[in-house]
Simulated assay, not measured.
Amino acid sequence: MQRRTFIAGLGAVSALPLTSRHAAAQEWPDRNITMVVPFPPGGQADLAARPIGLALSKLVGKPVVVDNRSGAGGSVGNAAVARAAPDGYLLLMTLSSLAVLPEADRLYERPAAYEVDQLAPIARVLADPTVLAVPANAPWKSVADLVADAKARPGVIPFGSSGPYGTLHIAMEMFAAAARIKMLHVPYRGAGPAITDLLSGQIQALASAPGTLKQHVDAGKLRILANWGNARVPAFPEVPTFIELGFKDVEFYIWAGLFAPRGLPADVTTKLRNAMRDAMRDPDVIRTFESAGSPAAYQDTDEFSKFVAADSARLVAITKKIGKV
């Protein structure tokens, strides 16, 4: 398991007032908070966690430790938080694959590592349509070029993912099924290592969030062929959507959101919810996301809970349709 830890600085901002010192829940937080990212550094969840961790540290007055616990496409980190004590000291910044991974376990008749209802949504942070990237020196200038080559060489062109049935894998399988092509799946522990190998030419295609790719596109190292959204991405306005290109059912979004173990005390939930609201207004957080090409897409707890339920149902249906791969 790859694991990396980062401690967010406190800065000089005073802590939120604590209303009582009588109950343990009311004293939250009285020690460091760990925010688990279930992927290696360099991906969308990591992009979301680090500026949020810094902002939360200033707001609640205790360090927020960003802990990369990668493995099994995100299942290892997701499960660790799902099984944790609901005390507000172990949180999860995860992606839309949250609902897909237990369904994938069921497809292969394995016990699910966790269930979505073991986790309580706190706030959505980012929500981007996935984009399709290839090396700048690749021969394909369009999706049509890639499809024609893949049909001529079925199962040969390697594409990366964040792990089997992770967000990046599901997006590519949707496209491949719609285009009636077969490519070679090369799974990684997360988007960060996959991007490294895309840049070196070890793989030839990758679906990922705009914010993880923009710097490499700007540097002339990668080319974006299409996006999985229902509108063009502001960071890449010249890039068409798959829907524009005639793939009407190829639509996928990679969102990042904060969760806690189900059963978090109400007063801790309120403090965390309020702190997240303020963190998402922090100019440094906004600037970091915008400069990466992934504008903030905040949803508070109630709205995010409804969003997760609807998106999970849609992704589970897609996973069942794709089946074993």
Results as ranks from 00 to 15, higher is better:
Arg180Tyr: 00
Ala150Cys: 14
Met174Cys: 04
Glu109Trp: 01
Asn78Lys: 02
Asp67Tyr: 02
Trp140Pro: 01
Val116Gln: 08
Glu115Pro: 00
Ala85Tyr: 04
Ala138Thr: 12
Tyr89Pro: 03
Pro111Asn: 10
Ser97Arg: 02
Ser162Asn: 15
Glu109Val: 05
Val116Lys: 03
Asp67Met: 01
Ser96Gly: 11
Val125Gln: 07
Ala104Gly: 13
Leu91Ser: 09
Ala171Tyr: 03
Gly77Glu: 13
Gly160Glu: 11
Val81Trp: 07
Val134Gln: 06
Ala133Glu: 10
Leu95Met: 14
Ala136Asn: 10
Phe175Trp: 13
Ile157Asn: 04
Glu109Lys: 13
Asp117Met: 07
His169Glu: 09
Ala120Cys: 04
Arg83Asn: 13
Gly73Gln: 11
Ala144His: 12
Gly163Ser: 10
Ala133Lys: 12
Pro139Thr: 14
Trp140Ile: 07
Leu98Pro: 02
Ser70Arg: 06
Gln118Lys: 11
Asn78Gly: 05
Ala123Gln: 07
Thr94His: 12
Thr94Arg: 10
Phe159Lys: 06
Val76Leu: 14
Arg69Ile: 15
Leu101Cys: 06
Asp128Val: 05
Leu91His: 10
Arg124Phe: 01
Gly155Asp: 10
Tyr89His: 15
Asn68Asp: 13
Ser75Met: 14
Val116Ala: 08
Ala152Gln: 14
Met172Trp: 08
Thr130Val: 13
Leu119Ala: 10
Gly71Ser: 08
Asn68Gly: 00
Leu168Pro: 00
Leu92Ile: 04
Ser142Pro: 05
Glu109Asn: 14
Ile170Lys: 01
His169Ile: 00
Pro154Cys: 09
Tyr108Ile: 03
Thr167His: 03
Thr94Glu: 11
Met174Gly: 00
Thr94Phe: 09
Ala104His: 13
Lys182Ser: 13
Ala123Val: 03
Lys182Met: 03
Pro135Leu: 00
Ala148Pro: 03
Gly155Glu: 09
Val81Gln: 09
Val134Gly: 01
Val81Pro: 09
Ala79Phe: 01
Phe175Ser: 01
Ala80Glu: 15
Val76Ile: 15
Ser75Leu: 08
Tyr165Met: 04
Leu184His: 15
Met172Val: 03
Ala80Lys: 07
Ala80Arg: 10
Val100Cys: 09
Arg153Gln: 14
Leu92Lys: 10
Pro129Gly: 07
Ala138Arg: 12
Gly163Trp: 10
Pro121Lys: 03
Ile157Ala: 02
Val134Pro: 03
Trp140Thr: 07
Val125Gly: 04
Gly160Ala: 12
Arg180Asp: 15
Leu146Arg: 06
Phe175Thr: 02
Gln118Thr: 02
Lys141Tyr: 00
Ala79Asp: 10
Ala84His: 10
Asp67Lys: 00
Val116Ile: 13
